[in-house]
Design a protein around this nucleic acid. Structure first.
Lengths: 150, 150
DNA sequence: AATGATATTGATAATCATTTTCAATAACAT
DNA sequence: ATGTTATTGAAAATGATTATCAATATCATT
């Protein structure tokens, strides 16, 4: 999504379009996904010296509330973030390494998964009176590198 | 699982069977699942005055390492814990309220889900060379009470 | 039952990620 | 250009979890 589109969305929600926000969105759009707040902050320091970690957190919160960002909690108390791209074809699930925290997206079998999810959501809505808004499917394991490392 | 069974498992792994550990396991076995460390601590204070929060954390860690406990990260940095009961028939997935953090287990459709999971695990192992050890399927939404509350 | 090696405990302090606070600054509708 | 007010960054505060450490409890061995 080009900058001027982002700008519009921000203005539309009563927020301002600022240099730090543009820098953060540029980074998230270009770089590989699944970064922690600190990782984002450190990467930004190179292209935007003086940016504050606080601002990174605030922007991530904002993006999450606007629905453009997914927050993925690791067990450690740390979160990782990924931008939700506009085309929904990128819907994916996660593969998380329990050793190093690396997250890999996968899209294999998602069609079958999505069908099941739809069914399950419907049933859960009826049985438990939950208003389902989202889901999270992740597999845990040890990645190739960490397997070699031991 | 009765106390003497737990005792055996603890001894078997080189750990000792102590009063705090017994109290924690008693609580987790009896009480409804999905408590945070603090909730567990506060509930224990009534039946075991003087127990330390540190001990609660340590016991939870130990139980997790021994494979008897699931740690469920909420987005907030807080974790909830649930005992894994011996019969595997209790395998379930989660329904998490994004307003109040309440977690509900569901077992509906798990058969279908499990079949899909097996397939997916196999594929992921091959394609991404991950050694899969576990999975996590959760649905997010707003529970009945929180729906009324607004 | 007493002993000794060492695992465990609880209190306190430390860590780590994330939030608040607040005065200074920047965005943008007018 | 100007004024309102959202945003920023630094520093302090928070909240969950972990490390430290001396005192205690477990339990295999005697």
């Amino acid at each position: 999504m080009p900058s001027h589109k982002w700008r519009k969305r921000f203005r539309g929600s009563g927020s301002r379009w600022t240099a730090p926000r543009e820098a953060i969105l540029n980074l998230l759009s270009k770089t590989s996904k699944h970064m922690s707040a600190k990782e984002i902050y450190q990467a930004l320091l190179r292209i935007y010296p003086g940016i504050g970690l606080t601002t990174v957190y605030r922007t991530l919160d904002l993006l999450e509330k606007m629905g453009f960002l997914n927050k993925i909690p690791l067990g450690s108390g740390e979160n990782k973030y990924e931008l939700i791209t506009e085309s929904d074809q990128t819907h994916h699930h996660h593969l998380i390494c329990t050793q190093c925290g690396k997250i890999i997206d996968y899209t294999d079998f998602v069609d079958e998964e999505l069908e099941l999810i739809k069914k399950t959501e419907k049933s859960l809505k009826q049985r438990h009176r939950f208003q389902i808004t989202d889901h999270n499917i992740e597999f845990y394991g040890v990645c190739e590198q960490c397997q070699k490392r031991r």
